[in-house]
Design a protein around this nucleic acid. Structure first.
Lengths: 127, 127
DNA sequence: CATGTCCCTCACGTGAACGTCAGGTTTTAC
DNA sequence: GTAAAACCTGACGTTCACGTGAGGGACATG
């Protein structure tokens, strides 16, 4: 498939797909005219990349991890890297939970009847 | 206390503290000479700001939420905003868990004896 | 063979949260 | 009272993951 189809299938922009290739995260065959052609499994690869981006990994880190995911590389260093990233994600989850807890407290407070100003003058403000 | 002390106490840079003020997140009294002076509770405020940044909130969103946290504002809109941000954090946690699970699978695979190349030629590479 | 749609490569723009340097003032310490 | 340390206000630089044209080929369809 060509880049436009991959873009619509995955929901990421054409620009983003070119950027992934530029970063070495995604490869494509080229037609005689220079156009990119992707295999079907590129869809899953893009999903994976997006997932790792969403987890806060940088392009560089993803580039380092992908060979491990592809099970082509398996060294003590690569395993340490995997564990390090997993731990980073764990810490990030912990932080998020703290923030969530804090917000929940504020929400509980704002919805408690003791603080019950259910209507204020700013209710009329639409903007 | 002055800005340098607040910076060392909280672990954030002086530049960041000035930036927080610029964004309306942190206020300070001024000395006759124009230097910022903070109350002791500014430390907690900075921690809170950092927590919300770490949760992926933007300056603008934090600016909108802080009055709620300070319990000065409590409107239907503000409560909706609080819930929306909490839900966003929940979704982010879910994504992180997925990524973590995926990494765990890769880790398990790389550490399984069936894949047991505990030493490879790249072991020697120090780089 | 023409045309509309898709694709290509530069290459500059963007927004967020600061880093960093310049040039000058204020406060502290001796 | 003077020198060092800390602080001030601009204002430009940085990084990341793209957005957004500009200008020009590639490809299916009539």
């Amino acid at each position: 498939m060509r880049i436009g189809e991959l873009a619509t299938k995955t929901g990421v922009s054409v620009r983003a797909l070119r950027y992934y290739e530029e970063q070495g995260l995604l490869s494509a065959a080229r037609s005689s005219g220079g156009q990119r052609h992707y295999l079907d499994d590129a869809v899953d690869r893009v999903y994976l990349i997006q997932m790792l981006y969403a987890a806060g990994l940088s392009s560089r880190t993803i580039l380092d991890l992908l060979p491990c995911v592809d099970a082509k590389v398996n060294t003590p260093q690569s395993r340490a890297m995997l564990r390090a990233e997993r731990d980073r994600i764990d810490r990030q989850i912990t932080q998020l939970r703290q923030a969530r807890k804090r917000l929940d407290e504020v929400i509980a407070l704002s919805e408690s009847p003791t603080n019950g100003c259910t209507r204020t003058d700013t209710d009329a403000v639409v903007a």
